[in-house]
Amino acid sequence: MRAPIGNFTDARPAVDCLDLLVRPVADAVRAWSGDIPVEQLIHVDTDPEIADTAVFVEHYGQGLLEQSANCVVVAGKRGAESTLAACLVLSSTRVDVNGVVRKQLAARKASFASMDAATGETGMEYGGITPIGLPADWPLLIDSRVVDTEWVLIGSGRRRGKLIVPGKAFAGLPGAVVLAGLGISAA
Score class of each variant (00 low, 15 high):
Asp52Gly: 06
Gly120Asn: 02
Leu20Glu: 13
Met115His: 09
Thr119Val: 08
Ser68Glu: 11
Ala54Met: 12
Glu66Gly: 14
Asp45Gly: 08
Arg94Cys: 13
Ala110Ile: 08
Asp19Leu: 03
Gln104Gly: 00
Arg108Ile: 07
Val29Ser: 06
Glu121Asp: 09
Val95Pro: 12
Gly123Pro: 01
Asp137Phe: 07
Gly133Phe: 12
Val44Met: 10
Ile50Arg: 06
Glu58Tyr: 00
Leu134Glu: 09
Trp32Asp: 10
Pro135Gly: 03
Arg23Glu: 15
Asp16Pro: 11
Ala28Lys: 04
Val95Thr: 13
Leu84Met: 13
Thr130Cys: 09
Pro37Thr: 10
Pro139Phe: 01
Ser68Ile: 09
Ala80Phe: 05
Ala118Ser: 07
Gly76Lys: 07
Val15Arg: 09
Ser82Gln: 09
Ala113Lys: 05
Thr53Glu: 00
Gly63Phe: 05
Ala107Leu: 03
Gly123Ile: 01
Pro139Gln: 00
Asp35Ser: 14
Leu41Val: 15
Ala117Asn: 07
Glu58Arg: 14
Gly128Val: 03
Val73Trp: 07
Asp35His: 14
Gly79Pro: 05
Ala118Ile: 01
Val57Thr: 03
Val15Asn: 07
Ala69His: 12
Ala51Leu: 01
Ile132Leu: 11
Asp45Ser: 08
Ala117Asp: 14
Ser82Met: 11
Asp137Arg: 12
Leu134Phe: 06
Ala26Asp: 10
Ala85Tyr: 07
Leu41Lys: 07
Val74Gly: 11
Leu65Gly: 08
Val97Phe: 10
Ile129Ser: 00
Ala110Arg: 03
Leu20Met: 03
Leu18Trp: 02
Asp52Phe: 06
Gln67His: 15
Trp32Arg: 15
Ala26Ser: 14
Phe112Gly: 00
Leu84Ala: 12
Arg30Gln: 15
Tyr60Met: 00
Asn98Gln: 09
Asp27Phe: 06
Asp27Leu: 13
Asp45Tyr: 04
Tyr60Gly: 02
Asn98Glu: 03
Ala118Gly: 01
Gly99Thr: 03
